[in-house]
Design a protein around this nucleic acid. Structure first.
Lengths: 352, 352
DNA sequence: TTGTAGGCGTTATCAA
DNA sequence: TTGATAACGCCTACAA
């Protein structure tokens, strides 16, 4: 390309190579080959040549254009298209903790929805997104967490025309959308439910995160409100990794006088606990009740299905929101609150 | 924007709102405000106004332009820039298994390098990348796996001008780069090394993947070549998850007559095994030797550091390659072979 | 040292 | 039903 052909004089030979060098065919070349104007090619190729919308193009012309495009291997230049239309056909997910399974569920949910609408989902893994988002031109951007120092940058990005969906409970809409989903009230509800049904409930977690610690606090305050405190052997702190969750669950469950129920501070921790219990020969939902937090897909799919607390279909609705924003089917700047509910499933005894 | 202001007549008021609507400032507005031409703005803002390269712009003018840009909150339109220059300042990582920790290491390594060169790293999580890559305009693309059906599409993408780096050992360069790193020979070397030093070696793994099964096979063939076969209680199949690795390791290590060394089919499995051993009170590197495969950062950072086998700094070199390709500092179409070596560390007894 | 002007590959508005 | 042609925002010879 920009390199000079090594020491050669004739650059265009090459034994009749089939590859058309690195010259990318443009819409004009297609037009020339098909014997029509670039406008017509544009109509045909952007699917606007037929249907009720655009200026119907004749069947025969359509075919000629398609053939020419095919023959040249034409692919539209997205950058040029974006300059003209202001759209990139792209949604961006800014994920600070890609190693977190929840992030992957978000990615999965939004990607599926986006793809089905012709949008390309892209991920940006950087907790310091300020710089990178300045440049992006995605049609909609999801931000999974905002650090205090970043809070002020959001409105600026939005005023630039970027459509932001911010998942954070410490922030108010201001030209961008906010998805809020308060977990603490829900956690408390779940713990109360467990304490009502089982006399001896243990807490597995928290892991390292602040979120987890808040969820563990809900356990202790629920106990406190009943005039009780948790014995030491009914609490297992872990570091957040699946293995340490597994190990922590073993520690809780191995002794003879094991608890009757386990409240885990996330679904993923709960899933590890279910596996640990099963490895000890316990029947989950009968010998031991286990519940998690988050109402994740992974928990719902587990066998036995995991009792949990969380919003109804949060991911699906976020995905839908992203698509609607990207396609201008919805105004920006709204607050979306997803209340939490308890989902009782087989892992605490209730059949599915 | 394209929505009409609800039932209102006057669209421009709004109580003297500070935000300049959603009209994005262009280079021309900056020029007008600074009282110079767009060319001068372009020179200044792309840093070409000073230095030996471009047409040195006067100090005073530079300042005026900078101020104007600042005041308007000007941000260059990447799409327009891309049309002109053919570069997007972006590298794309196509990752089929984002849940795999190795993928995250790739992301981490390439991202860091890319960012330090002013390139924005983006991730695409879709094992079916054919469609999406057709549209992308990234300056370089990393592909972490190619399914048989996708093999033929690679050359096509490359001939379109895309710079591809394909990580796959079943494919030859053809207008795109290939990174190859044969693990089997290395695995065999590691197993031989273990068998030389310890009489009783167990195998932890494989997980679900084909890669893992090949690595387990290396264990058995090494044994076979010495006229031995692995007793049943010296092999633990797992499903690839950290918990099952942990559980598998417990099963190997809990009985009195435990093996003296464990060969795990990946570093991540090995790390789970180290944790399991430690939870049993064993001193890894003394009571039990544990080795993994892949020579990952996570293993190197473990305590004790994990003996492993793998290429020297593969990720760093891949990252460098991506940047060089993206910035046209290197021709396309090369084969990069990264041979594997055994890295003996503290987890098998040798001090760091 | 700065400005003019042309062009990158599209899409969209007209007029034919 | 189709074709000229003017943008879109930016970069960059070249001229001044």
């Amino acid at each position: 390309m920009s390199e000079r052909t090594a020491a050669g004089t004739d650059t265009s030979t090459g034994a009749g190579n089939a590859s058309p060098a690195a010259v990318r065919p443009t819409i004009r070349m297609v037009a020339d080959l098909a014997g029509v104007s670039t406008a017509t090619v544009s109509y045909v190729l952007s699917g606007r040549g037929s249907g009720s919308k655009g200026p119907g193009v004749k069947e025969e012309t359509t075919r000629r254009v398609r053939d020419a495009a095919e023959e040249l291997g034409y692919r539209p230049n997205q950058a040029a298209r974006a300059v003209r239309t202001g759209k990139t056909q792209t949604v961006l997910l800014s994920m600070t903790m890609l190693q977190d399974p929840w992030s992957l569920e978000v990615v999965e949910a939004v990607s599926a929805q986006a793809r089905s609408h012709g949008l390309t989902p892209l991920i940006m893994a950087d907790d310091d997104w300020n710089v990178a988002l300045e440049r992006t031109q995605a049609d909609a951007v999801f931000i999974d967490a905002v650090k205090p120092a970043q809070r002020s940058a959001l409105a600026g990005l939005a005023s630039r025309g970027l459509k932001l969906v911010v998942f954070d409970s410490t922030v108010e809409p201001d030209g961008f959308d906010v998805v809020r989903s308060d977990d603490l009230r829900g956690c408390r509800e779940l713990v109360d439910h467990l304490l009502d049904g089982w006399d001896d409930v243990a807490c597995l977690g928290p892991g390292a995160s602040r979120t987890d610690r808040g969820r563990a606090a809900a356990f202790h305050s629920a106990l406190a409100d009943r005039g009780r405190t948790a014995p030491e052997n009914r609490v297992a702190d872990i570091d957040g990794s699946p293995e340490s969750a597994y190990a922590g669950a073993l520690k809780l469950l191995t002794p003879e006088d094991r608890p009757r129920a386990i409240y885990a501070t996330s679904d993923y921790i709960a899933i590890s606990a279910v596996h640990a219990a099963q490895s000890l020969g316990l029947v989950v939902g009968k010998d031991i009740a286990i519940a998690g937090v988050g109402n994740t897909l992974a928990g719902e799919r587990l066998s036995p299905a995991l009792t949990s607390v969380g919003p109804r279909n949060l991911l699906g609705r976020v995905a839908e929101l992203m698509v609607q924003l990207a396609t201008d089917q919805r105004p920006v700047g709204e607050l979306h609150d997803f209340p939490w509910e308890v989902w009782e499933r087989a892992s605490t005894g209730k059949p599915v």
